[in-house]
Design a protein around this nucleic acid. Sequence first.
RNA 1: GCGGGCGUGGCGGAAUUGGUAGACGCACUGGAUUUAGGUUCCAGCGACGAAAGUUGUGGGGGUUCGAGUCCCUCCGCCCGCACCA
Length: 873
Amino acid sequence: MRPERYNAKEAEPKWRKVWNERDLFRTKNDDPRPKYYVLEMFPYPSGRIHMGHVRNYTMGDVVARYKRAKGFNVLHPMGWDAFGMPAENAAMQNKVHPKEWTYANIATMRAQLQSMGLAIDWSREIATCDPAYYKHQQRMFLDFLEAGLVDRKTAKVNWDPVDQTVLANEQVIDGRGWRSGALVEQRELTQWFLKITDYAEDLNDKLDALNRWPEKVRLMQRNWIGRSEGLLVRFALQPGTTPNGESELEIYTTRPDTLFGAKFMAVAPDHPLARAAAEKNPELAAFIEECKRIGTAQEAIEKAEKLGFDTGIRAQHPFDPSWTLPVYVANFILMEYGTGAIFGCPAHDQRDLDFVNKYGLGNTPVVCPPDQDPSAFTITDTAYDGEGRLINSRFLDGMTIQEAKEEVARRLEKETRNNRPVAERKVNFRLRDWGISRQRYWGCPIPVIHCDSCGVVPVPKDQLPVVLPEDVSFDVPGNPLDRHPTWKHVSCPKCGAKARRETDTMDTFVDSSWYFARFTDPTLGDKPTDRATVDSWLPVDQYIGGIEHAILHLLYSRFFTRAMKKTGHAGLDEPFAGLFTQGMVVHETYRDRNGAWVLPGDVRIESDGTNRKAFHVTTGEPVEIGSIEKMSKSKKNTVDPDEIIGSYGADTARWFMLSDSPPERDVIWTEEGVQGAGRFVQRVWRLVGEIADRSAAWDGAPAEGRIGTAVRKAAHKALAAVEDDVERLRFNRCVAHIYELANNLQDLLNQAKGADEPGLASAFREAGRIFVQLLAPMMPHLAEECWVELGETGLVADTPWPQVERALLVENAITLPVQVNGKKRADVTVARDADQAAIEAAVLSLEAVQRAMEGKPARKIIVVPQRIVNVVA
RNA sequence: GCGGGCGUGGCGGAAUUGGUAGACGCACUGGAUUUAGGUUCCAGCGACGAAAGUUGUGGGGGUUCGAGUCCCUCCGCCCGCACCA
């Protein structure tokens, strides 16, 4: 006896148990089928999963299950990005050890993810905080060190005063720490760096080939890498004007064509020349101090005036030694970019123009726009940076910008001073090396030892891992490793003398820069990867995650893969062949009359079709409906996945996540939407029941009649459409096609009532199978239950994807819309192979067409095969 | 400021990439079933109109037999970067 309602609560755990018992989703590395690697960005074990996780992992799961049915050997693993600050914060607040906190969260979240019914190979699960994982990371760090990919240098770093750690440039957002939100300070520290800039050119060039990445992400990376082509020019300094007899100043410019418009030179406040000059000039020293003070308060920079201080140093124009330019220290010059020095051409650079207007240095336009009279062209307070031809520039006059750039480079390259060319062509990057030192406990220890006589000594590889000590306390701020009584005190591996262990740990972005490679074989005890295995699985065919990782994680991973190639741990450059960035899960916000946020679960909505009003469920008081925003605890607009799965079932949650919004856009979570998804689950159950009944009398007779053909046609049409859309990750369209098929099948079932047509049972049987198979990647539990109901054997999760019968999709008679002068007036049904003449005759004989033509003759009839007919009268 | 994206019913969104605008879902309306609510089933649902029809994809203009889609222009919203020489 078939129950009236589908009981997700009972069915879902039952089917998960069956999948587990059969080890259905365990992936073998020696499987001969073609590989397909689908990966969702692994979660940080923060406590509990949120709806964003549900959306992310559902999408990946649809792809995994679909590709599996399509005959691929699918790798779909899961792990934990388990190191990081929140564990330490929790330790400080709740007196719980970071390890304990992390593993408890992992246990909770693993159970939650498993309740979603994901087709994941859990045997490959990894946690980055596991010594069995980070041991290999330490090994690779040492390999990178040997290969010259690691640097230890003093650098001005971004210091987060709240988290008491260094931040990478990428982790500073609007001058604030990405986690703490504290204003970031500049400090000089000795740090470990990974030399990502070695690959700047390659990381930039290969972006073009990543054609299965969103254009937006590629563009963001391109901007971040910030490649520019320009000229390094060595200006001679006028003898007698420099503090210590310096004779040259190197500048970098992308506009050498504007050299004759130069009015001044400027160097960064921390430029060596500025420092040298400051030693002999207290006023200048004070100015530099002032710049630094403003420099730390990042907010001020945006509004800050262009300020400068004339050092008294004079530079000579490279094309005319008698032409001298004043050298300023200016607050808007960055030491980190180029050479930390510029020549200023105010007419064609807004910043330089602001500067000269303040200090009265004037400007000379040297590029004239095409529509301007060169003799009358002047600049006052808006610099011109467009195209044009050179003026006021001696031998460059009349040239285009490109020609002038080339001419300047050509001439200065040939000239020499002190056995060096006066100028060199140079490609410059905005990208900086990746500082990975963090003064934190809960991270991967950097495996080196500091010895007073031997310097920095790598920990011998056979002594790895350097395991984090567990006896630490968090009652004072700072790094507990640094104050650990025993752990940090070791003997030097080289000379045996007393030495200190490095107490900095690695940025957690290192952990996530290679986990996708480790998934290919997490059992390897002695090495990070097996070359043959990792090369057979990588690149990841489809990577899915949030846009927030467009730069950090994805750029680091691209670099790390290259570094792994150089050190023999992998054989490719690009780790992710296909990338998809999904949108967020958003929800309305609610506030009561006191302005306090109200949980969606405490709100009742009333609607008359146009207006919606909200009330508090317990008090009945009106609640104000606010803007739709990303789910967040602070605004209380969250919905707990556990509650949804508990009341509706995982399939309903999955289905709702995939419907309506295109996956790259934000999806609005609504109670009505979930209910609709839940209704559809029940509808599927009833429909499949009816189909099972209708096809029970199956006698093997093929479907031939009108209804039977229509049933098969509907099924195969949906199959073709869903297939196409899953391949392109257009899940919202898949959902729509499945709804449409359900509607069509219901309709045809109604028509089939009492109909006596040969082979109907056969048609419904086939359509039922296809229907359930289409559902299976999205609602896997329901699909299994329906599969049994249809009388099929085995698991639908283990059944090959059906073949589209293309011949069925070809119509013999087609109905074309008919337009007269571009307006639709009628439909015409013609044979599929009807020729132009036959269609024209059929169209002109239509009464509606005649009427619309108002007796005028047809001047032209346009027939677009299979599409439309347009009569021009 | 620079770069990118977007604008379609009450709402989320479709539109075979220049060929019937509004698929599918939500909300809503009417009817049937039900003691009632819910569920379920049937029907309707851009606007104006009784209908025929007219009109309609942010505004204006253009190309085309034909424009949501292409071009120009204006308006609005969102995202990223931001003193990068």
